[in-house]
Nucleic acid binder design. Structure first.
Lengths: 197, 197
DNA sequence: GCTTTTATTGACCAATTAGTCAAGAAAGAA
DNA sequence: TTCTTTCTTGACTAATTGGTCAATAAAAGC
């Protein structure tokens, strides 16, 4: 009989994913050990394996979780918010600047994972590629919307601009890891802004 | 008596560094095992340890080697070549486009290493940061030179522009790992070019 | 030829890895 | 209560990891 009874979980799946995400985000896939995931989540090994499968499966769920809980609200929702599309782009830039300068900034989990796993795990690479596409898409439609409102140079290729912005953000996430310098970040953000003129 | 005699090396150090570089470049530090370095270089373990120290020390030497043999000739020398600075920047863009689209493109070893080790190995992070600075510097002086020649908008902040270009190149190296798409790369390069106008 | 120094070879080791097994604990269904 | 199902705990394992040891080989200096 399916769906019947059994001892209920003693943990909140979302909260566990949050903690696991924090570790993977900071250290990457390989450098994160199961023991570390145990202590970070407070779960025992078998609970982890029972609930999420092996390390790789857990990592996949963490990537999805990251997109839902970090990128969707922090970027996509910001861009798609009603009102001035240009203002939304500016809000995204500001948010990039702030997060990049935060003391505990770990880059972008998607970008980090692409660097680490992009060439050796085609399945995960496919997932990551789709995440990039979703970000590009969000940027693209916002650029278009801003163009329609006369807030961004209408002569620009919206898709090309979106791709340049995505690339800039990913580059910033990398470079800032070793030079957390406010002037540097502002220079890059200014350049991103200039891409809209 | 120091500096006397002993059996001479049976291998060429530069060639060994080339092979080791290829492996580290493709797979990263953690994912590269000593066994793999042995078979890639053709050296036995003790020869490797005797000549280069432990894995981390070898990796450091590989990073230096990468800069000397890849970045210096492929970027710095191109930018510092005599003649039109703007043309040199264009040559760099073309080279980015070509290498990014090559079948065996593995990103930038410096950028990859920053992602993997930037937060956990301060010493290596410092070295990587200096490499970024050298690239920024080369871009910066070339932008300035082009400005002086009237080939690039003289109103631009040369340093800010150099930083944006560096960031763009690093971002491209990441993004292209999962979407090796000619149009995408051209869009990004066009945006980089627009940063000079 | 003998000595000294370094290079090479391959076996070895301790530690860590991801993943599994088996027994016990807890809660809903009957 | 009793049964059934799932969750939890901690010990266990097989494989791989980076790194080392000791013996051998090869060349230069005397």
């Amino acid at each position: 009989m399916p769906g019947v009874a059994g001892r209920p979980r003693g943990f909140d799946e979302q909260e566990v994913l949050n903690r696991a995400m924090a570790v993977f985000w900071q250290k990457g896939f390989d450098a994160t050990g199961i023991a570390e995931l145990e202590s970070a989540t407070g779960l025992g090994r078998q609970s982890l394996y029972g609930a999420f499968g092996d390390k790789r499966a857990l990592f996949s769920k963490v990537v999805e979780h990251y997109f839902e809980r970090v990128v969707e609200p922090g970027l996509v929702a910001v861009l798609d918010a009603p009102g001035s599309a240009r203002a939304n782009l500016e809000r995204a830039f500001t948010s990039w600047e702030e997060t990049a300068l935060a003391r505990d900034f770990n880059g972008c989990l998607v970008g980090n994972s692409v660097s680490e796993l992009g060439l050796r795990d085609p399945e995960i690479a496919g997932v990551l590629q789709r995440k990039f596409q979703l970000m590009e898409e969000a940027l693209c439609r916002t650029v278009r919307r801003a163009q329609a409102a006369g807030e961004v140079n209408a002569k620009l290729d919206a898709r090309a601009t979106a791709r340049a912005l995505l690339t800039t953000a990913q580059g910033l996430a990398v470079v800032v890891r070793v030079s957390r310098d406010r002037a540097f970040v502002q220079n890059v953000i200014s350049a991103a802004r200039r891409l809209l003129d």
